[in-house]
């Protein structure tokens, strides 16, 4: 046994102390700075999990005035009107500023009577589209929301989910 090994054995058998905690806290700070979790990863994970758990079809953003059929959702940050499309379903959404920094989300879907769910960060609201496919959500707070459309009149069809809409 070398003295170094003896010392290591001794140290290994002692309880952890504040200096050990401090060293580990510094390691955490260092790794968080040089090897951070990519920005947006948790958002992408949550969306992918929602789609998977609902077995939902993802609607694509229709971007007028662009050659591309779809754009990244961040490119229409706080746009006022956006349109999404999936197989056999179109969804148009208009955002209106309302009281106290909240937003009114008015929408229209090509499936009258469909169940429309608005998913916010930590809550969700459900309404039913009227005979003309219109729906409205009031008092929506800032953040990313998704709409989930379920059309019960056609059994067996998958729900449709929109990409994130920045409110």
């Amino acid at each position: 046994m070398t003295p170094t090994n003896d010392t290591e054995d001794l140290l290994a058998g002692q309880p952890m102390d504040a200096d050990d905690e401090r060293a580990l806290a510094l390691v955490r700070d260092h790794l968080s700075a040089v090897d951070p979790v990519p920005p947006g990863l948790t958002g992408r994970v949550k969306f992918a999990m929602t789609v998977a758990s609902l077995e939902a079809e993802v609607a694509h953003l229709i971007n007028e005035g662009s050659m591309a059929g779809t754009v990244r959702t961040t490119e229409y940050d706080r746009a006022t009107t956006v349109t999404f499309e999936s197989d056999g379903l179109s969804i148009m959404v208009t955002l209106e500023e309302a009281d106290r920094g909240t937003t009114t989300v008015r929408g229209w879907v090509t499936s009258p009577g469909a169940e429309v769910e608005l998913r916010e960060r930590s809550r969700s609201a459900v309404t039913t589209a009227d005979d003309e496919g219109r729906f409205v959500f009031e008092g929506v707070e800032r953040g990313t929301v998704h709409l989930v459309i379920r059309h019960h009149d056609e059994p067996g069809t998958r729900p449709v989910i929109t990409p994130g809409i920045e409110i």
Partner: peptide, 27 residues
Amino acid sequence: SIGPTRGRCLAKLRLALTADPTWEVTA
């Protein structure tokens, strides 16, 4: 292998830090 005692890995680190003036000065 770690906690409540230091264990082998943390002991190795502690040994290295003890010999490092950067750590000794601030510890």
